[in-house]
Amino acid sequence: MQEIRYELLLLGHDSPMNGQIVDTLFAQLDLLGVDKELLKIVKAEAFSFDGKDDHPQIALYHSGPDMLDGEILEKVIKNAKVILPIFKDGEDFNKVIPKVLHEINGIKVSSQNDIPSIVNHILEGFGFLRASRRLFISYRQNESRGVAVQLFEKLSLAGFDVFLDTHSIPKGDVFQDELWHRLVDTDVVVLLNTLDFLGSEWTRSELARASAMSIGILQLTWPDHVPERDAQISVALPLAKRDFVRSRYLGVSATLKNERIANIVRQTELLRARTLSARQTNIITEFVKFSSRVGKVATLQKERFMTMENSQGREIVVIPTIGVPNAFSYHQSEDLIRVIRTSQVEKIYLLYDHLNIRMKWLEHLAWLDKFLPVVSVRVSDMEDWFNKI
């Protein structure tokens, strides 16, 4: 099977951020269990184009007064590769970024806190992280409503799809079903750990279910309180009185200072990669163990998908999927295999855990399976699936 080679192009003006971006990227690849040898860092002077466009490639373009690397940009754009224009806070985007990139939504940076976000965009572009960036805010309305709404707004501006019960459930929808459905499809739970957080049955259930599904939990622990220890993957971020506006941390109107919010956004980005890796690893481990029990050999590839032979001796590919599969998941999986597949690859399967996914969505997945070359498989249905392939 052909090995994927990922390329990160560093274009535009030389930036001190590049070294930090690359170091953080390699650290996150370690967390995700991806072989770092698969990634090649290419600077403009070393760029060469051999006419092939069958490998994943992402370019970073750093802003500056001169419009650099125009010929390379044209080739990258022609081959439909991802380009991330990066410009500094206070700069006029149209004056520091080449015109050919003006239609692309650029990334504005103001400090090192923005580096994890850039790295996650790269990982998403390569398919190592899913493109959906979903968060779930767990809180007590009568204790921390002001901070919850503040985080909902700030994290949404940072590019996350944030679930907040008072803002995210459509009128007339079944509240509890939608809440659990959104929890299973989230990347990180931002838990506002106030003094009586566990005094509610809802918040106790949210914490228990998130931990059971290996969802990462960022605990913002209020002053004079201690972190909860029940979560499997949890990062505690203690809050001090000085982190709150006018040092007022009690009551529904309390809010956090902007500098503390910026740090929370950064910690959320870092935890996101770790929790997605853990959830994917859980699915992979369960599949490999089960395949061994039934006498099959499942081989985990460096790119974090599995290959094995069906009963006819033909190769099939199984891709572990986190959260709720959707049409984009199907398309991404087919596109990935198109890059690496040989003529012997017969079928592509998405493996997912269906627990807490709403019935109407499971019915939609069954409908998609009838029309698309990529087929979904529930973890709980593995025994029947192995008997059929």
Rank of each mutant, 00 (worst) to 15 (best):
R130W: 01
L84W: 03
M67P: 03
E37N: 14
L135T: 00
P98T: 01
V100C: 09
I97H: 06
F47Y: 15
A80T: 14
D54L: 04
P85T: 03
L25E: 03
P16C: 08
R130Y: 03
R130T: 03
I107N: 06
N79H: 14
R140V: 06
G106Q: 07
E71A: 15
P56L: 09
V100H: 08
S132V: 06
L129G: 03
A80W: 14
G19L: 13
K95F: 03
G90F: 08
K52V: 05
G146P: 02
E124A: 08
G33F: 01
P85L: 08
F126W: 11
P116W: 00
P85Y: 01
V96H: 04
R134T: 07
A46T: 13
G106L: 05
N94R: 14
Q20V: 08
S132G: 07
Q141P: 10
Y6L: 09
R5D: 12
Q28I: 00
K108Y: 09
E3G: 13
Q141E: 14
K99R: 05
L135S: 00
N18L: 12
F93Y: 12
F47G: 09
P98H: 05
I72M: 10
H102W: 07
I83C: 04
D69K: 10
N105T: 15
E7Q: 13
P98G: 05
E45H: 15
F136R: 03
I97E: 06
H55L: 11
F47E: 08
D23G: 02
K88D: 11
E103D: 15
D35T: 07
E71W: 15
I72E: 11
L129H: 03
A131Q: 13
K108W: 03
G12C: 06
R133N: 00
Y6F: 12
F128G: 03
F26L: 12
N142Y: 14
S110N: 12
V147Y: 00
